[in-house]
Simulated scan of single mutants.
Amino acid sequence: MGFTDKAKNKAQEMSGMAKERIGDATDNERLRAEGASEQSAARARQAGQHAKEAGRDVRETFEK
């Protein structure tokens, strides 16, 4: 995962956190749900990238 991908995922996760907190503060259920959804999507992409990197590391280990 490149630096830009990591930065984009982190930015989306932080944006989701902000939306969720604003939704909590204003009692806006839609904004709260949207924020939680953004966080989940960003974390899922991060997990996928980590799994991809782990697979690459395993492959490189066996190629040596």
Rank of each mutant, 00 (worst) to 15 (best):
Q12P: 04
D27G: 07
Q46D: 07
D27A: 14
M14S: 13
R21E: 12
A36Y: 01
A54D: 04
Q46G: 03
N28F: 11
R59Y: 12
K19R: 14
R30M: 11
N9A: 13
A18F: 15
V58N: 03
R43P: 00
A18I: 15
Q12W: 08
K8N: 13
N28T: 05
E34Q: 11
S15K: 15
Q12C: 07
R30A: 10
A44G: 00
G55A: 10
A54G: 04
K8L: 13
A11M: 15
Q39C: 03
R45Q: 04
D27H: 14
E13K: 13
N9M: 11
A7R: 14
G48S: 08
R59V: 00
S37G: 03
R32S: 06
K52N: 04
A7K: 15
R32G: 01
R45L: 05
V58F: 14
G35L: 04
K19T: 02
R56G: 04
E13T: 08
A25V: 09
M14Y: 15
D57P: 00
L31M: 13
R32A: 01
I22E: 06
A54N: 07
K52V: 03
T26Q: 15
G35P: 04
R59S: 05
G48H: 07
E38F: 05
H50E: 10
S37W: 04
K10S: 10
D57C: 03
M14P: 05
Q46E: 07
E34N: 08
N28E: 08
A33M: 07
M14Q: 13
R56F: 03
A41P: 00
S40L: 05
Q39N: 00
N9P: 07
E29I: 03
D27I: 11
E38R: 06
G23P: 08
D24N: 13
A33V: 03
E38Y: 05
K19V: 09
Q46R: 05
E20G: 01
Q12N: 12
L31V: 06
E13Q: 15
N28A: 09
Q12E: 08
A54M: 11
M14I: 13
L31C: 03
A44I: 10
E29T: 02
I22A: 10
A7H: 11
N28V: 08
V58L: 10
R21G: 06
A47R: 11
E38A: 02
A44T: 09
I22V: 14
R32M: 06
A42W: 01
R21L: 12
R43T: 02
A18D: 13
A11Q: 14
R45F: 01
E20M: 14
E29Q: 06
A7D: 08
A7G: 02
